[in-house]
Write a protein that binds this DNA or RNA. Structure first.
Lengths: 371, 371
DNA sequence: ATGAAAGCGCTAACAG
DNA sequence: CTGTTAGCGCTTTCAT
């Protein structure tokens, strides 16, 4: 009987918005608010409120009466009223690029889970890579008085966020710095996973690797390219042997990039992709011209979306945990929000990445090791 | 200047929660509510409210003053307060099975789009096929005072919905009847698409088709099986030649089902799957034992998820438009909500399906037509 | 056409 | 410990 402060109410039975109550000889439809509970429990509404919020100062007998009344009436509090008076909405915003990109549903799932566990609800907004939509999305969230926003899009619009940050609302960004007290950033350690990938390929005997990047306009795509460059250099690939071409993080983009490479006779023995969708496109195009993966061509993806396990062959890829991302984003937001304006919370979190070796990589096609 | 009744406010600039206002000689942080706007425009708060809500009785000059003040202050209304007093939350619930099932993101996208266009926000809840979670999900939505819930899960729990329906909240279900004034149902016309698929196969010369269904506990899975049975009968397949085996709508399930079939020597020349994920699993398993699709085996999916275009070979499948589904669900909800309790809105909508022929179907492997 | 005032359902001082 | 009361920011009568 300790109350469910802001948690989801009444776990057992479904609740009626209206309760049927006998009054005199007539049956009337009565609004089911805190007052109704108070009357029935013969206490003040303040006591009901305290009970519901688990404030310890309520005497055990009264509390029992209140809970009894609550159950009998199937009462549950009105979130809007709670939010209005307390100034807290228990709402968090999650901004993503587009929900049909398989990367995001897994992120959303993780975020929703942890948020709901903690009594928050989430509002999702997709930008579809359009800065104007980003603007609108954020406005919607502001109107709903979200207590924090996680901007998990691939491309981030500096000026927009700048304004958001000035609005005194906690913000969590991915791969993007914004020096402001309520902003924290999740820094993905691209270097780790991409480094492993390059070394994996080098160890296999590959002397040339082509990296198919995402759009250079996207922050996170550039970060991956940079990580690749560094890794390639460390592994002593010359720039010529570590060519970089640009695609757009879609299957079609991957197909196109591959076909262009192939048409120009520039096919390396190994291709690394900036994300799994691109890799899937490459896989598909390679297959359609009769190349066998990994015998004729090694392919590595990035993200480790669930589907990567089910390509043919299963895709070797760099894993970045969406669940980590989601949980970290949530706690970053919450920690900046719960103790408002207390500016001691860390501003930066690192998200690890690591190579997952499956079956799309092998020794190069002309390798002596094969003989 | 007609007002933005409940639409997203101030489309141009990002708004400050606090506005910096000169007062006497000091710069002060002032709360930005309707009163601030009223003061600045030298009108009453009632007038501001009317202006904002586009109520025509406001004189044009006053309206202009109000809008000017609104813009200067970057004011936007507080949704919680609005909701509290008006009893409307402009929130709609969308219950799905699980967001990582590629079927749903496309549905969500459609639903979100149309909802936002109409000034609604959506709350998403995933049941993960667990009735208990369904219960919780719905409770969350009730607490937030959603104005309607679209339950688009594959499996539907009758008693739960029954209680929901009694709660006077508009409900839209998929493939599920619930005789209640505020409940509408979207009836997917499985027969059409599945019929076309069976006939397509029959016309190609297939004499045996195996149907791999989803879990029989799911309503929508059963509906697909039933449609298949009818179509097979119409096409004069004997029950023996139109075998049905059960899987679970996942890639793994499809792989398993195929392997079982293959191990028992029960492989038909054509396999129809209850959804695309299953078909992808079958495709993958078939490939791994050296079967070529469609030469050795024809495969048809269901749903037409986006990825179906990118399998190898591209998947012939029955298309059910998620956008249709989403839009229809939205309007069904809205029409039951806007004119509260007016019970003349249609209760039933049909969602069409149709076969999309791609490259995973061909004449059977032993067909004379090939020679 | 405009304003004053009464709440919406709840929380949070402030009394006792 | 418990109750009374004053709003949270807004919409909506009811006057004018």
């Amino acid at each position: 009987m300790t109350g469910f402060p802001r948690k989801h109410f009444l776990e057992i039975s479904i609740i009626s918005y209206y309760a049927v109550v006998k009054r005199k000889t007539k049956t009337a439809l009565v609004k089911l608010d805190i007052r109704a509970v108070a009357e029935r429990a013969r206490v003040s509404i303040a006591t009901v409120s305290r009970t519901v919020n688990g404030i310890p100062s309520v005497g055990p007998d009264l509390a029992k009466r209140v809970w009894k009344a609550i159950e009998e009436l199937d009462y549950y509090p009105n979130t809007q009223a709670r939010g209005l008076v307390s100034g807290r909405s228990r709402l968090l915003g999650l901004v993503i690029s587009e929900i049909t990109n398989p990367f995001f549903p897994e992120l959303i799932q993780g975020f929703e889970e942890i948020a709901v566990e903690n009594g928050y609800e989430i509002l999702i907004g997709s930008t579809n890579y359009d800065p104007k939509r980003m603007n609108l999305v954020i406005r919607r969230m502001l109107e709903r008085k979200v207590e924090g926003v996680a901007v998990m899009t691939f491309g981030i619009e500096e000026p927009l966020l700048q304004q958001l940050a000035e609005r005194r609302i906690p913000l969590t960004l991915i791969d993007f710095d914004l020096p402001s007290p309520l902003v924290s950033t999740l820094r993905v350690d691209y270097g780790a996973g991409i480094g492993q990938a390059v070394h994996h390929l080098a160890a296999l005997g590959h002397r040339q690797i082509t990296f198919i990047s995402g759009s250079a306009t996207l922050h996170s795509a550039r970060a991956r390219v940079d990580a690749f460059k560094i890794a390639a250099k460390e592994a002593r690939f010359s720039p010529k042997d570590a060519r970089i071409v640009e695609a757009n993080h879609t299957i079609e983009g991957g197909m196109l990039a591959f076909e262009r490479l192939q048409a120009r006779g520039e096919l390396a023995t190994a291709i690394m992709c900036s994300n799994d969708m691109t890799a899937i496109g490459v896989l598909r195009s390679a297959f359609s011209i009769g190349l066998r993966v990994p015998r004729d061509l090694s392919i590595i993806g990035f993200d480790d979306i669930r589907f990567a396990q089910f390509t043919t062959p299963p895709l070797t890829t760099v894993q970045m945990s969406r669940v980590d991302l989601a949980r970290t984003a949530f706690f970053a937001l919450r920690d900046h929000g719960e103790i408002p304006l207390k500016a001691t919370t860390p501003r930066e979190y690192t998200i690890p990445t690591k190579l997952v070796v499956r079956q799309s990589t092998d020794v190069p096609r002309d390798s002596l090791k094969r003989n």
